[in-house]
Design a protein around this nucleic acid. Structure first.
Length: 570
DNA sequence: GCCGTTTTCGGCCCGACTGTTTTCAGTCG
C-alpha cells in the first residue's frame, strides 16, 4: 500500500478530531505522523509486515504504530471508522476552504446544521452566517469567494507556474526606487513540486513606494491586504502573493523563516532553545539582544550550522547531516552534459531531429538521445520495428552535421501489461539507448504493476526506466507500484531510473530519488522534451533530484560521454 | 499522541493578520 494512503488515514483522523475539539497536541501528533509517513521513501506498511519497529520512526509512537500495523494487516483502521460515525460525512471537506478552520466548521454545523459545501454556500448567500458570533458581513463575503476558488480547484500550482510568477514579479519590483533586495521564499525557493502561494521578501528604503508598485503589477486581480510591512494580492491565475518589506538586520532571519518548511523551522527553533537562544522571523535572540539576522549564513552560524540548501529544508535529516558536516554536495544545472529522453516529429514531438540538436548545442550539451515512442502508444504515433529502423538511420544521417554533439539512437519502448516490451530484441539491439516506460493500463493492482515493471527491468535491453510512476502532478496520481521493489530490481540489474524533468511529472519524485540514492541506484535527469524549447525544462528535474539529496555522481548525464555510456552498460 | 544530556509527567513554535470585537478568537504559515 502506498504511504500516501496511510498518511491520508492519519490526516483524516486529525481533521475529525479537530472538528470534535480534541486536544490540539494529540491532533498535531497525527498530522506530524501523516506528514512523516508521506515523506518516507520506504513503504511503512511493508515495514509493518516485516515486523520492524515502527516506533523508531520519529513522530510514530506506540499508538500510531499499532494503527499502522492494523492498516497493513486489514486495510482499514477501526479508530477512523469509529470517528467517521461521530460527525456528518461532509464536514472534513469544509476544512479545505480557505479561511475555514475546525472551530467555524463546528459552529456552523451546530447552529445551522451545515454539513456540505453546498449548504455552506446557501447559508452565506442567505445571510444566515453573519448572525453567528464572531461572524459578519465581511466574513460571509470572503467565504463566498473562497468557496468559488475552492470549487475552481485553484488551490495549488505546479512549481514552474510558481517560479515563473516569482521571477517575473521580482524583476518588476527590482525596478522600484530604493529596492536593495528582492527574493521569493517559501515552497518556491525550496523547489517543492507544487506551490500554494508566493512569499516575496524585500529590503527597501521606500516601503510605501514598493507596495505601490506591487499593486501595479499586471497580473494582479485583487488586493487582499495592505499594511506597512506586508501587502497581499491575488493574481488573475488564482495564485496568492504576499510581499513583505523588511529591515536589513532581520532580512536573513525572515528569509530563513519564510522559506520554511514549517517542520524544518520547528526543529531549528528547538535547536535554538537548547542553546538558550530564541529564533523567530526577526532574528536569533539571546534574551532581548539580537545576535544574528542579517543573512541566512549568520542565522545558521549562530546555531552552529552551515547554511542548509533550501531544497533540503524539510526536516528529513538535514539538521543532523549539517551538524556532522555531512550535507550532500547537490547536483546543479551546470553539471548537466546531456539529455537522454526526447521526441521528434517522427512521433508526437514538434521539432525535427535537427531542431532538437540545434537547441542542444545552444545549451552546450555533449550528447542527447532521440527516444521515440513505440507502437503501443497509438495516440502519439508510436513506431513499429520497421519505422524505428528507418528513424534510426535518419538519426545517423542527421548526426553527421553536429560533430561536437553525439546524438544517440534511442527509443522509449512501452512496457506491456505483462512486463514484456512492445518491440522485439532485434530492433532494440540496434539502439544506443533503450528507455522503457508504462503508458497505459495504469489501473493494475499494485502487486501486478510492480511485477510488470520489475520484469521489464530484468530485460537485458532496458537501460533506463522512464517516468517510473506515471503520475501527472495536480491531474492524476501515479499508478500503484512498490517503489522499494523497483529500486531493488534497478540495483540488481544496473538499470538507471529516470527523473523526468517535466514540471507536470517530476517522476521519480523527491522521496523516491532519495531512496534510489541511498541504495546506490543511478539516475538520469531527462526532459522528455516534445519541442526544442522544452529542453529548457531540465532545471525542474535538477531541483527534484536536489530535493532527493542527489549529487552529480548519482546522475549519469552529468558524466562525460564515455563515462555516461559505460554507466548505461549492464 | 509523542517525547526525554533538565523531564516517564508535563510540556508541545510563535507571531501576524482579519474581522469581529470593546480585549479577542480563529486562521494561517
Amino acid at each position: 500500500m502506498e504511504n500516501s494512503v496511510v498518511a491520508g488515514v492519519f490526516d483524516e483522523i486529525a481533521n475529525i478530531l479537530d472538528i470534535l475539539g480534541e486536544n490540539p497536541f494529540r491532533i498535531r501528533s497525527y498530522r506530524a505522523a501523516a506528514r512523516r509517513i508521506a515523506d518516507m521513501p520506504e513503504s511503512v506498511t511493508a515495514m509493518a509486515r516485516e515486523g520492524r519497529d515502527l516506533t523508531a520512526v520519529p513522530g510514530i509512537g506506540v499508538s500510531i504504530a499499532e494503527k499502522v500495523r492494523e492498516i497493513a494487516a486489514t486495510g482499514r483502521c477501526a479508530f477512523l471508522a469509529d470517528l467517521r460515525g461521530k460527525i456528518p460525512r461532509g464536514l472534513p471537506e469544509l476544512l479545505r476552504i480557505e479561511g475555514l478552520g475546525p472551530k467555524k466548521v463546528k459552529l456552523f454545523h451546530e447552529r445551522l446544521g451545515i454539513d456540505s459545501v453546498d449548504r455552506l454556500e446557501e447559508a452565506a448567500r442567505s445571510g444566515a452566517l453573519k448572525k453567528l458570533p464572531g461572524m459578519g458581513g465581511k466574513s460571509e463575503e470572503n467565504l463566498l469567494g473562497a468557496i468559488g476558488r475552492y470549487r475552481a480547484g485553484r488551490g495549488r500550482f505546479t512549481l514552474s507556474t510558481g517560479i515563473e510568477y516569482a521571477e517575473s514579479l521580482a524583476r518588476f519590483l527590482r525596478e522600484a526606487r530604493g529596492t536593495a533586495a528582492i527574493e521569493a521564499a517559501g515552497s518556491v525557493r525550496r523547489r517543492r513540486e507544487t506551490v500554494g502561494d508566493l512569499d516575496i521578501l524585500a529590503i527597501s528604503s521606500d516601503g510605501p513606494g514598493l507596495m505601490e508598485r506591487f499593486f501595479r503589477y499586471d497580473g494582479i486581480e485583487e488586493r487582499t491586504a495592505r499594511g506597512g510591512t506586508k501587502s497581499s494580492a491575488r493574481l488573475a491565475c488564482g495564485l496568492n502573493v504576499d510581499l513583505r518589506v523588511l529591515e536589513e538586520g532581520e532580512y536573513g532571519a525572515a528569509l530563513q523563516y519564510f522559506t520554511g518548511s514549517k517542520e524544518h523551522n520547528i526543529a531549528l527553533r528547538g535547536r535554538a532553545a537548547a542553546r538558550g537562544l530564541k529564533l523567530s522571523e526577526y532574528g536569533v535572540f539571546r534574551g532581548e539582544r539580537r545576535v544574528a539576522g542579517r543573512s541566512e549564513e549568520e542565522v545558521y552560524a549562530a546555531l552552529g550550522l552551515p547554511v542548509i540548501p533550501p531544497e533540503l529544508r524539510e526536516n528529513r535529516g538535514e539538521l543532523s547531516a549539517a551538524e556532522q558536516g555531512a550535507l550532500p554536495d547537490l547536483v546543479e544545472l551546470r553539471d548537466i552534459r546531456g539529455d537522454l529522453q526526447m521526441h521528434t516529429t517522427a512521433t508526437d514531438g514538434r521539432g525535427t531531429i535537427a531542431e532538437m540538436a540545434e537547441k542542444a548545442k545552444k545549451l552546450g550539451y555533449e550528447y542527447i538521445a532521440i527516444t521515440e515512442h513505440s507502437k503501443a502508444v497509438r495516440v502519439a504515433g508510436g513506431l513499429d520495428a520497421k519505422k524505428l529502423a528507418a528513424h534510426l538511420r535518419a538519426i545517423e544521417k542527421a548526426a553527421g552535421a553536429y560533430p561536437g554533439l553525439r546524438i544517440l539512437k534511442g527509443v522509449e519502448v512501452d512496457i506491456l501489461p505483462d512486463g514484456s516490451l512492445d518491440l522485439d530484441d532485434g530492433i532494440l539491439a540496434e539502439c544506443d539507448l533503450v528507455v522503457a516506460s508504462v503508458h497505459y493500463r495504469f489501473n493494475l493492482p499494485e502487486k501486478e504493476m510492480t511485477r510488470r515493471i520489475v520484469r521489464a527491468i530484468g530485460n537485458r535491453r532496458v537501460q533506463i526506466l522512464g517516468h517510473p510512476t506515471g503520475r501527472l502532478i495536480l491531474e492524476r496520481p501515479g499508478y500503484e507500484v512498490e517503489m522499494e521493489e523497483v529500486v531493488k530490481a534497478a540495483k540488481e540489474h544496473g538499470v538507471v531510473l529516470e527523473v523526468n524533468a517535466h514540471p507536470s511529472r517530476l517522476d521519480l519524485r523527491d522521496t523516491h530519488v532519495r531512496l534510489a540514492v541511498e541504495r546506490g541506484v543511478k539516475l538520469a535527469i531527462s526532459t522528455d522534451a516534445h519541442a526544442p524549447s522544452q529542453l529548457d525544462l531540465m532545471r525542474y528535474g535538477v531541483y527534484t533530484a536536489r530535493r532527493g539529496w542527489a549529487e552529480a555522481a548519482d546522475v549519469i548525464n552529468t558524466f562525460p560521454l564515455k563515462r555516461m555510456l559505460a554507466a548505461l552498460k549492464r
